[in-house]
């Protein structure tokens, strides 16, 4: 039982050791974003989504990912820019982040909706600037840095913060409250 698992792990570590500077870039609205590929598990087509009632706009629903039920977050809504309109190129990028599950912190898969996936790029640390203190129209703590790619800036997402499960759960609780008091 243990042997093959360990091997797999070893392979993964070996494979990814050179990937520190690799980023997956994608589009949300008209802006380019990037996420370190070490967070990326897979990219799947948008579809077969089950909406979960009484959740804030940015929680789009849940999908069946090979037997696991994985939440799907609408990043555009999370950034306060309104719901993503689904188009032919819309994808769900599955990321792995630290999150709460019950009382425990553990790695969790979360899907995010993006308007289009672009490519995997190498962005060396020297090409990354600190996040701007204002003007990005996105909460500063969601931004890990600004990467320079061919003269343009891409926003490097702070995945752990943008997909902070604890915070999202608390936001969901607030959204829920007024509906709960609705008259019957």
């Amino acid at each position: 039982m243990n042997q093959p698992q360990r091997k797999e792990e070893a392979v993964r570590i070996a494979d990814t050791s050179g990937d520190q500077n690799q980023y997956l870039t994608f589009q949300i609205g008209r802006e380019m974003f990037a996420v370190g590929i070490l967070y990326i598990r897979e990219i799947i087509e948008y579809g077969s989504l089950t909406t979960v009632p009484m959740m804030p706009e940015f929680v789009r629903g849940v999908i069946n990912l090979r037997g696991s039920v994985v939440p799907v977050i609408d990043l555009s809504a999370r950034f306060g820019r309104g719901e993503s309109a689904i188009n032919r190129r819309s994808c769900v990028v599955i990321l792995e982040v630290e999150g709460i599950n019950g009382d425990e912190e553990q790695l969790q898969e979360i899907g995010v909706i993006v308007d289009a996936v672009s490519e995997v790029l190498e962005i060396p640390p020297g090409e990354i600037e600190p996040p701007p203190s204002f003007g990005a129209r996105i909460r500063a703590d969601f931004i890990a840095g600004m990467g320079k790619v061919q003269g343009n800036f891409v926003i490097l997402l702070n995945v752990q913060q943008a997909l902070n499960t604890r915070e999202m759960a608390e936001l969901a609780a607030i959204v829920d409250a007024p509906k709960d008091a609705r008259d019957y």
Binding site: S48, T50, V52, P53, M54, M55, V59, V62, I63, N64, G67, S68, V69, V70, P71, G99, I100, N101, G102, Q108, I110, T165, R166, M168, A169, E170, A172, A173, D176, D180
Partner: peptide, 25 residues
């Protein structure tokens, strides 16, 4: 199937399951 921690404050729903069709209920 347990629901992600994101849904921990959700009232009226206790979990999820996968139907034969692959859809989540």
């Amino acid at each position: 199937k347990p629901l992600s921690g994101i849904f921990s404050h959700l009232k009226g729903l206790s979990g999820s399951t996968i139907l034969g069709s692959g859809q989540v209920a």
